[in-house]
Design a protein around this nucleic acid. Sequence first.
DNA 1: CCGGAACGTGAGAGCGCTCTCACGATGAGA
DNA 2: TCTCATCGTGAGAGCGCTCTCACGTTCCGG
Lengths: 350, 350
Amino acid sequence: MAQLEAITAKPVATLDEVARVAGVSRATVSRVVNGSPKVSPDVRRAVEKAIDRLGYVPNRAARSLVTRRSDSIALVITEPTTLLFSDPFFPRLVRGVSAALSVRDLQLVLLMPDDMDDEERTVRYLTAGHVDGVILVSLHGDDPLPEQLATRHIPSVVLGRPPRGVDIDFVDADNRDGGRRATAHLLANGRQRVATITGPRDMGAGIDRLAGYRDALTDAGIEFDESLVATGDFTHPGGEAAMERLLRDRPDIDAVFCASDLMAAGALGVLQAAGRRVPEDVAVVGYDDSPIAPTTRPALSSVRQPVEEMGREMVHLLTGNIERHGRVPRHVVLATELIARASSAGRAMR
Amino acid sequence: MAQLEAITAKPVATLDEVARVAGVSRATVSRVVNGSPKVSPDVRRAVEKAIDRLGYVPNRAARSLVTRRSDSIALVITEPTTLLFSDPFFPRLVRGVSAALSVRDLQLVLLMPDDMDDEERTVRYLTAGHVDGVILVSLHGDDPLPEQLATRHIPSVVLGRPPRGVDIDFVDADNRDGGRRATAHLLANGRQRVATITGPRDMGAGIDRLAGYRDALTDAGIEFDESLVATGDFTHPGGEAAMERLLRDRPDIDAVFCASDLMAAGALGVLQAAGRRVPEDVAVVGYDDSPIAPTTRPALSSVRQPVEEMGREMVHLLTGNIERHGRVPRHVVLATELIARASSAGRAMR
DNA sequence: CCGGAACGTGAGAGCGCTCTCACGATGAGA
DNA sequence: TCTCATCGTGAGAGCGCTCTCACGTTCCGG
């Protein structure tokens, strides 16, 4: 297992040395380092001086060994393909998680298993108690990991509402409300026949955004029409295919809500190739507010998720989870925001 | 420091228990676990059976304590802003690094300091010997971290050739050759007045891609013309501004090589707004082959970097570095690839 | 038949830390 | 004045592992 040979010498001071320099016992230094209140002010000062002088930094391994805590949490990303990589979702999430951990002096261990072998290694690693908690990012619902961790009592939080109602903490963006907002926005702009290109029907985000679309129709007193719904897969080509289908089946549409920006970009291209002007003939709204949104022509309206905040919130939940032994599963759903751009500009009311 | 309270009980077996079950000593079990050759086959088998039965997994902290190795390396990303987040560079790199570490049974600790406070914490953490090596991703040359690590003899590898010639291992894509390829491609398509929008002049990638542009001109026997060069900053608005300047100063250009896709997308918009057809009037090539490249209209030709491979190579270098005490700095430069799309389609030779 | 190399194995120290427990000093209450 | 908390401090055990060293076998050559 151990792979790295011959590490350079590390002249770091130990607790013992600090104790000697400060003229106290190891126990007292430990108390100072860990902020125990039962140390007299002058002793504390002396110890702090010694720590400064020696540049002492506690040895994490030694501490872990006795506390049986690692002070590190794992971020596990089990997303096989490009999906996660095509928008800045991942970096933003990681940044949120990282920032939240950093202020708590917790360490972030990143795990991205990419084959079965790796996956097994990951499970073994996690269940061996090498981390105090796990943040799981796997967009598909068929991942066995959450349950494996739950049965082994490893505190964990997942991103996105699990399709099956596993009793587990999760953080999600309000996909349903996001879908509702996007659709309502199109309707408010005077659109009459609003179609939608959905995400995969087995993913929470796909299901919820479609539900939001229906909500908006209901709110507006418009009947839901199955022929205005095309199933996509969040990708650019998927969006193109869905748009072609839509255009063939329902040439009369005047707006499309796409459950991802990538699909929206694909739809945009197909619409324009078919001679439809955007937004004059057909308005388009995407989802994710990815960096491509402002760069399409016309610039794409989109629904923005508070991704960094989701990361922060996951850490928050997880640390709470660890403290209270994960008694009651908790769920946090964060609000989205509609960013209106040219692709859904209003037109004169009929 | 220690923040997490009350961890769940961990019923994991210890070396001692395995030894007892297998009827051997701790030392022997340790030998088996670590693959020592000096164990007889039958004893080894017995130990392995016991390990299986008890589900034994070595305690990393205990091992670290004695070996003074952590079997983990840090990936430090000190990129303050959006740059890293607007293209899939980061996720791809992380995936490459992660995969390479995983097969070596090394752990990836991700550090993304985002303020001064954080930065200090990071330095303290790294220099405390909590990791066996460091992979540094900081695109700007003014980062003090590489030198800090070097003076403290922490093995490290940086991404991208450092602007100042620090004696440190690095992995880079061949930006110069990439710039050359892109420009040569435009020239080969019959373009006469090829402009370029560069990256920041204080970043290796910016400098090198421009140098490649000059190389291609030289190769083609064309004199370098300063008025065909506009400095950008890798961003979309930066590309727009540079393109406007170019169009004003040199309305006669018939091709542009942009040092990033984002800038190319910006340039595309400005060109089209100015009534220039792409690629008929002006051909455009970008850089990075980001996901926006195939989605622009027309689809953007671009230079693709082997990002995953760069990640893998960094790990490779780093582990080697750790083993041989980083004697001689090593540099790895990986080749790029031109992805030709519609934006640079050839036109009939004059 | 014996000395010694070669090999497999076990005993035990110790990595740097935390934490329990005991101890002496101080102060309050009777 | 004499208890008895209270408080700050130190001694020491022990977390789970690796690694050195010593020991017992086996097997060779002389």
